[in-house]
C-alpha cells in the first residue's frame, strides 16, 4: 500500500506545472525514502530529475517499492482541480493499475477524489555524473525567469557568458539584439536575492530559449536558481 499526504497541495501543483511542458509521461518511483522521478524530454535534449523526500510529506507510507507510470497531462488536469490549501492524499495499492488523488478542503466540507489509470513505462535509470563546473552562478530564480522570457523575444538562443565580475545574458535576431549584465553582489545580506558566482575559469555557452523557458516553469518552487556551467557539458 502506498499513501502520501500533503497538508497543502500547492507543492505538488507547482511540481506538475514545472514538468508537464517538458515531459508527456514519467514514472514516479516510490520507496520508503520518498518519490523519485527521472525522465528525458522527447528529443532527449534535457533530463528532469525530481526527488520528493518522504519527510516532506505530512504522512508517508510505502510498504513495498512501487513504480507508477503517470500520464503527466492527465495528472496535471487532476492537480488543477485542487485548491492550493487543500490537503492532498495520493494512494495506490501495491500491484495497482490505478492511483487515486483525494483533495480535502480546509474546512473539511468538501472532499474530492480522482482516479487515474497508471501506464506501463519502460524504466531507464541514468546516472548523473558528479561534475566539477567552470562556473556556478546562484541568483534569484525570478530574475533568471524574467531574463529568459525577455531575451527569447529577440532570438532563439541565449548566450550566457560568466566571469568573476558577473554574468551576461545575450540574444540577437531580426528584432535586434539584447544584453543583460548582472554584477556579482558585493555585500551579501540576503543570500536568495544575491548574485553569487564561483568561477574556476570563465565560460561562454549558448542555449535554446525554448528549453530555458521550460526549465524556468519551476521558478515558483524556489527563490534561488543555480546555473552550473562548463564548456561542452549540459547546463
Amino acid at each position: 500500500m502506498f499513501e502520501a499526504r500533503l497538508n497543502a497541495s500547492n507543492v505538488l501543483k507547482k511540481v506538475l506545472d514545472a514538468i508537464k511542458d517538458l515531459l508527456n509521461e514519467a514514472t514516479f518511483d516510490c520507496s520508503d525514502s520518498g518519490i523519485q522521478l527521472q525522465a528525458m524530454d522527447n528529443s532527449h535534449v534535457s533530463l528532469v530529475s525530481l526527488s520528493l523526500r518522504s519527510d516532506g510529506f505530512d504522512k508517508y507510507r510505502c510498504d513495498r517499492n512501487l513504480s507508477m507510470g503517470m500520464n503527466l497531462a492527465n495528472m496535471a488536469k487532476i492537480m488543477k482541480c485542487a485548491n492550493n490549501d487543500d490537503t492532498l492524499t495520493m494512494k495506490a495499492q501495491d500491484n495497482a493499475d490505478t492511483v487515486t488523488f483525494m483533495f480535502e478542503s480546509q474546512n473539511q466540507e468538501k472532499v474530492s477524489d480522482y482516479e487515474m489509470k497508471l501506464m506501463n513505462l519502460d524504466q531507464e535509470h541514468l546516472g548523473i555524473p558528479e561534475t566539477d563546473y567552470a562556473c556556478v552562478v546562484r541568483m534569484p530564480a525570478m530574475e533568471f525567469a524574467r531574463i529568459c522570457r525577455d531575451l527569447s523575444q529577440f532570438g532563439e538562443s541565449v548566450v550566457i557568458s560568466c566571469t568573476k565580475e558577473g554574468v551576461k545574458f545575450s540574444a540577437s535576431g531580426d528584432a535586434g539584439s539584447a544584453n543583460i549584465k548582472l554584477a556579482q553582489t558585493s555585500t551579501i545580506d540576503k543570500e536568495d536575492e544575491s548574485v553569487i558566482i564561483e568561477m574556476q575559469e570563465p565560460v561562454t555557452l549558448t542555449f535554446a530559449c525554448r528549453y530555458l523557458n521550460s526549465f524556468t516553469k519551476a521558478t515558483p518552487l524556489c527563490n534561488q536558481v543555480q546555473l552550473s556551467m562548463s564548456a561542452d557539458v549540459p547546463l
Binding site: V45, S46, L126, G127, A208, Y211, P234
Partner: peptide
C-alpha cells in the same frame, strides 16, 4: 542556426 543537441551520452546508463 546552432541546434540544441541530445545529451543522452552524458548520462551513463546505470
Amino acid at each position: 542556426k546552432q541546434r540544441q543537441t541530445a545529451i543522452t551520452s552524458f548520462f551513463p546508463n546505470t
